[in-house]
Amino acid sequence: MPLFWRIFALNAAVLVAATVVLLLGPVTVSTPVVLTEALVLAVGLALMLVANAALLRVGLAPLRRLSRAMSTIDLLQPAPRPLVTGHSGIADLIRAFNTMLDRLEAERATSTARALSAQEGERRRVAQELHDEVGQTLTAVLLQLEQAARRAPEPVRAELRQVQETTRGSLDEIRRIARRLRPGVLEELGLNAALKALITEVTGHTDLTVTHRLGPDLPPLDAETELVLYRVAQEGLTNAVRHARASAVEVSLQRRGQDVELRVTDDGRGAAGAAEGAGIRGMRERALLIGAQLSVDRSATGGTEIRLRAPIRQEGPAT
C-alpha cells in the first residue's frame, strides 16, 4: 500500500472508531455543553490524538532512519547501508537510496582513480624534468664554478666557493624533491626499502626522531597497494613535521591476518576535533581505491595515529 493510503487509512480508522463510540456509546452533547460532557469529549480527543501520533510514529520510523543516514553519509568513509524496512513506498525509497549510494561510490572511485593516476603521471614527469633538466644544469654550473674558482684570485675564489656550496645545496634539494615526487626505490626495491629511505630522508632534514617496525612476514603486494601505503606514510610524516609539532614518530607496517596494517604515530599536539584537511581527505580517497580502511585518531601519547588497514592483493600474473 502506498504511503499516502497507509496514512489515510490510519487516520480513517481512528476517526471511524471515535464515530462508532459516539453513536453506540452513552455519550451525548447538550446545549449548552455540560461540564461532564466537555470532559468526556476532551478525553476522547486526547486519546484520538495520542493513538494517531503513535501509529504515525511507528509507520514513519523508517523515514527518520533514512533521513539520519542521508544527513550523515560521507562517501569517503563508507558506512553500513540503512536497513530496508517498512512497507511498499518506504522500503522502495530506502532501496533506491542504497542503490544511489552504490552508484555514487563506484563513480567516485572511478573518477578518483583517474585523477590520482594522472597526478602520479604528472609527478613522474615533473620529477624527470627536475632530474634531467634542472639537475644537469646545476651540475654544469658547479663545474663551471669549479673551473672559475681555480683561476680566480684568492678573495674572489672564496666567494666562488661559497656560491658553489649554495648551488650544491640547491642541487641536493632538487634531487630530494624529485625523489619525493617519484619514489623510484619503491619500483626498484619494494615497499620496505622505500619506507626506510623515506624515514632516512625525513630524519636527515629535520629534528624529528623516526623509528620503524616493519614486519618480517609481509607478503608481496600489488603495485597500487604499495603506492597507497607509501603515500599514506609519506603524508603522515609530512603532517608530523609541518603541523603536529612532534618530536618523535613511529612507523609500523605489520601483517594482520589477510590484511596489512600501516600505522604512523606521533607525539605531537593531536588532531582531535580539528577539521580534516586536504591531506587526510587525499589519504581517504587513496584508501578507497584499494578497499582499505583509514582512521585518524588520538594516539596513546596524545598525538595523532594514522592507521591504514589494506587487504592483501598480490600482483597478478603478467599477460
Results as ranks from 00 to 15, higher is better:
Leu93Gln: 08
Ser88Leu: 04
Gly59Glu: 13
Thr19Met: 10
Val260Glu: 08
Leu130Cys: 10
Ala178His: 02
His205Glu: 15
Val210Ala: 06
Ala127Asp: 06
His205Phe: 14
Arg182Trp: 09
Arg242Met: 11
Leu208Ala: 09
Val16Cys: 05
Glu315Met: 01
Gly273Thr: 12
Glu276Gly: 00
Leu101Asp: 15
Leu10Ile: 12
Ile7Tyr: 08
Thr203Gln: 11
Leu186Asn: 06
Leu39Pro: 04
Arg95Trp: 09
Arg307Pro: 07
Gly169Thr: 08
Ala310Glu: 15
Asp259Glu: 11
Ala223Phe: 01
Arg108Tyr: 13
Ala96Phe: 02
Gly135Lys: 00
Arg150Met: 15
Leu142Val: 11
Gly25Gln: 03
Glu187Trp: 04
Trp5Pro: 08
Asp217Tyr: 02
Gln254Met: 11
Leu15Tyr: 06
Ala300Trp: 01
Glu159Ser: 00
Glu188Lys: 02
Thr139Tyr: 10
Asn52Arg: 08
Asn11Cys: 08
Glu37His: 01
Ala18Arg: 05
Arg298Trp: 08
Ala152Val: 04
Asp132Leu: 05
Phe97Gln: 09
Gln147Glu: 13
Leu24Lys: 13
Ala106His: 08
Asp266Val: 07
Ile290Tyr: 12
Val126Phe: 02
Ala96Thr: 10
Leu45Arg: 10
Ala118Asp: 15
Pro26Thr: 15
Glu154Cys: 01
Asp92Ser: 05
Arg182Phe: 04
Arg245Cys: 13
Thr31Phe: 08
Ala233Val: 06
Arg255Thr: 14
Ile290Met: 12
Glu165Gln: 06
Arg175His: 13
Ile94Leu: 02
Leu3Thr: 10
Glu129Ala: 02
Asn11Lys: 05
Arg108Ala: 13
Arg231Cys: 07
Leu104Tyr: 10
Arg180Thr: 12
Ser252Val: 05
Asn192Thr: 14
Glu276Val: 00
Leu60Glu: 12
Arg123His: 05
Val185Arg: 08
Ser247Tyr: 05
Ala278Glu: 14
Arg95His: 09
Gln147Ala: 09
Val241Pro: 06
Thr200Met: 06
Gly303Thr: 11
Pro219Ala: 13
Arg123Cys: 00
Val29Trp: 04
Ser170Trp: 02
Leu55Val: 05
Glu188Gln: 07
Thr265Leu: 09
Leu3Asn: 09
Ala53Arg: 11
Leu76Tyr: 06
Ala278His: 10
Glu105Ala: 00
Arg57Cys: 07
Asp74Phe: 00
Arg64Glu: 15
Gln293Asp: 15
Leu195Trp: 09
Ala54Leu: 07
Val126Arg: 02
Thr225Ala: 13
Leu181Ser: 01
Ala149Asn: 08
Ala127Leu: 02
Leu195Pro: 07
Ala197Ser: 02
Glu173Arg: 00
Leu171Tyr: 11
His131Pro: 00
Val21Gln: 09
